[in-house]
């Protein structure tokens, strides 16, 4: 469905500054500045170019649910917009459903359902009118849209809100409406950019349930997320992006097997003591990672390792033995935690 080779998106410095302005959570600290996508000098005038996406390769097959996992600013949204044919690549090769978005944008977009990160619902219209006008933009006749809208309202569980203004909806409802809107043209590929960011747990579960249902009907899903539980729940296969590059690719379980031990022991000794204790834990587990607030011991034998730590005379304030997750894979590959590390 999607085939991208050495896909690159570069912004000139002026343009990138403008885009950065629009981004809600802008990285400011020096530490975070390191993880900004690479800035390279180009041309004889020495003008700088910001590479938001730096030569990524990916293939997505029909019917697959594919995830792009990464922290804020990793290049996820830029990739999604390139796949959505609303942002043109600077170089590389990209085909979506066998077509080149540089030349066949409208036909590709007719195939796609798009759920952008920020809601772009039409707040001057009602729920039903949003679906109707969006369908009309695709050129679908009203007679075909009327029954389709009923299906979509059922699917999004918004029948009782059909004549309400969009503003009256909760965050979760708005997101469901955006998904319903993305389905109005019966897309073969649905692009979801951070579909559950900012939603409460209950709203997320309702949304996941809807997306499961879609998967069963054969719609190809491509989604970005910075929640590892979401990626594990929804994606059969995923790539991990960091600073505009893909750092790993595979099924969630395989990635965990490859890049992490089976279990993780999380121990906290208090903010200042973590680094004091660290040297004394030598030999426990496969690897120990130090985070500002805790130590992570990667191991296949969590319980006995925790006992060993206590046996060495270090009583943690809190301790937790858990199964390894994609969060650990991400930490291993990028040296940072996924959500606001």
């Amino acid at each position: 469905m999607i085939r991208a080779r050495a896909l690159t998106k570069a912004y000139s410095r002026a343009a990138s500054a403008k885009r950065a302005e629009r981004r809600p959570s802008e990285d400011t600290s020096a530490k975070r500045a390191e993880r900004r996508p690479s800035e390279v000098s180009t041309g004889s005038d020495g003008g700088r170019t910001l590479l938001a996406v730096d030569g990524i390769d990916l293939d997505v097959a029909a019917g697959e649910s594919f995830g792009i996992l990464g922290a804020n600013g990793a290049g996820k949204s830029t990739t999604m917009r390139m796949i959505g044919a609303t942002l043109q690549r600077t170089s590389g090769e990209l085909t979506i459903l066998g077509r080149d978005p540089a030349h066949e944008g409208p036909v590709i977009r007719a195939h796609l359902g798009v759920v952008p990160q920020q809601d772009t619902l039409d707040t001057e219209l009602t729920v039903r009118e949003n679906l109707l006008t969006y369908g009309r933009y695709f050129g679908l006749p009203r007679t075909a849209l009327v029954p389709r809208i009923e299906e979509l309202l059922d699917f999004a569980q918004l029948q009782d809100k059909r004549d309400e203004k969009v503003e009256a909806l909760s965050g979760g409802m708005k997101r469901r409406l955006t998904i319903a809107r993305g389905l109005v043209n019966d897309p073969s590929l649905l692009l979801l950019d951070e579909p559950t960011t900012g939603l409460d747990p209950q709203a997320r579960h309702i949304l996941w349930d809807r997306l499961y249902q879609l998967r069963e009907t054969g719609v190809t899903l491509v989604l970005t997320t910075h929640y590892m539980d979401e990626a594990e729940q929804l994606c059969e296969r995923l790539v991990i992006m960091d600073a505009g590059r893909i750092v790993a690719e595979g099924a969630p379980a395989d990635l965990i097997r490859t890049y992490s031990s089976r279990e993780v022991v999380e121990v906290r000794f208090g903010t200042n003591r973590n680094s004091e204790v660290l040297p004394h834990l030598h030999g426990i587990g496969d690897r120990i990672e130090e985070l500002p607030d805790r130590l992570l011991v990667y191991t296949d034998t969590g319980e006995s390792d925790l006992q060993e730590i206590v046996a060495r005379g270090f009583m943690p304030v809190t301790a937790l033995v858990r199964r390894a997750s994609l969060e650990d894979v991400f930490l291993r590959l990028t040296g940072r935690s996924l959500v606001d590390g």
């Binding site: 959505g84 977009r109 969006y134 933009y137 695709f138």
Partner: peptide, 13 residues
């Protein structure tokens, strides 16, 4: 309202 953003992701030009 960002409606052009939504519109340009359809097949409208």
């Amino acid at each position: 309202l960002r409606i052009y953003q939504a519109i340009t992701s359809t097949s409208l030009g």
